[in-house]
Write a protein that binds this DNA or RNA. Structure first.
Lengths: 194, 194
DNA sequence: AATAAATGTTAAACTAGTTTAACTTCCTTT
DNA sequence: AAAGGAAGTTAAACTAGTTTAACATTTATT
């Protein structure tokens, strides 16, 4: 059952007694999105924070030319939302679309707020998750500046080997901030170098 | 007095009663760093989260060539630390150096943890601050991909007009991920365009 | 099995940003 | 007031990554 995946995941960070688990269960819902469906659309308010129990998503920004820029991918045990939109309940800058059929456990803003109050351990947990995400985000900024596209591709493969196998190459190029043609060139150079 | 600056700042987010203010005061220390002094050095453990009451700092990464890459600046009412190092109490990736004489209020890891427990409002406050920082960091990643160096410079000026006036140009170039020579060229083009 | 659609490749011409190096201007320190 | 260092500028040669366009391969649909 889906909810159990969340409990298992949380148990590696915090321990919740039966009562707390029941409270949590009463505040979340479960949903399945089909491949290509949108979890969040640019311009809509992001209603949920989503915990992925299975599947794969991409979070992307559409620029004025209609080009998509992938901000992040999401797989099992990742938290996915347009955080800026969710916390302020204002229109989203990003789209979240499913690359595979994706099952999630959803927290509304109101339910999450009430969980924070009822189970302070959970607020602490989310603070720590967000701290880590911020550290990772800052590291990514520095990486982008200090490394060539080829190095960044190799680092990506090492950091997220599971994602590299599941998403098309042109999306990885977008995540790295380069064109699919250039990534193709990089890959052929890497094969040659071996 | 320095501590009052922190209280004033916090009051725009949360209200602390006298007792809570006293607890807070008992858990922080004050320190003045001179121009060019280091608040954090790459390799050391980042011992404090610093709230700047006056002055200006740069947080930067030194790559293998010895080139510095500025991750962020800090001015009055900003929180400065190597967050990754602070939360795990492991060696820092970044340096924090003062661009001006800088006064800060410092929180050790232990004191901050105990404040979170004694004043849950403060944990909520920090969660929100970090959420915002994460949103800003993700936006910066997308900005870097979607805009030219010239656009990013204009955006920087608009976003942080106070910082632009206080720090040398070559540091702004580093923050933008371009060379000082190219920023110089961009500026001369902008003058010409007017 | 056939066709269309999505994904991936190659190569040539191009451009945004880097490198190097020489020079200028401004700021400190004596 | 002079001298030295830090910060900023200019320009030429270069390179990492883009653009365009044509083609190849894989995957999905009938």
């Amino acid at each position: 059952m889906q909810f159990q995946s969340l409990i298992n995941y949380l148990s590696t960070f915090i321990s919740l007694d039966e009562n707390e688990q029941d409270i949590l269960a009463s505040k979340v819902t479960h949903r399945t999105y089909l491949k290509n469906q949108y979890m969040v659309q640019q311009g809509d308010v992001c209603k949920y924070v989503n915990f992925i129990t299975s599947g794969c998503t991409k979070t992307f920004y559409l620029d004025n030319d209609g080009t998509e820029h992938i901000v992040m991918f999401g797989i099992e045990n990742w938290w996915i939302a347009d955080l800026g939109s969710f916390i302020t309940q204002s229109p989203a800058d990003y789209n979240v679309q499913c690359i595979e059929t994706t099952e999630v456990i959803q927290f509304t803003h109101q339910n999450l707020e009430s969980l924070y109050t009822q189970i302070p351990k959970l607020e602490r947990f989310f603070r720590k998750i967000i701290e880590r995400a911020l550290v990772a985000s800052q590291k990514r900024i520095v990486r982008n500046f200090t490394h060539s596209a080829k190095d960044n591709y190799l680092i990506f493969k090492e950091l997220y080997p599971k994602i590299e196998q599941r998403v098309p190459q042109y999306m990885i190029a977008s995540y790295l901030g380069i064109t699919k043609e250039f990534l193709s060139k990089i890959k052929s150079e890497l094969i040659f170098e071996k």
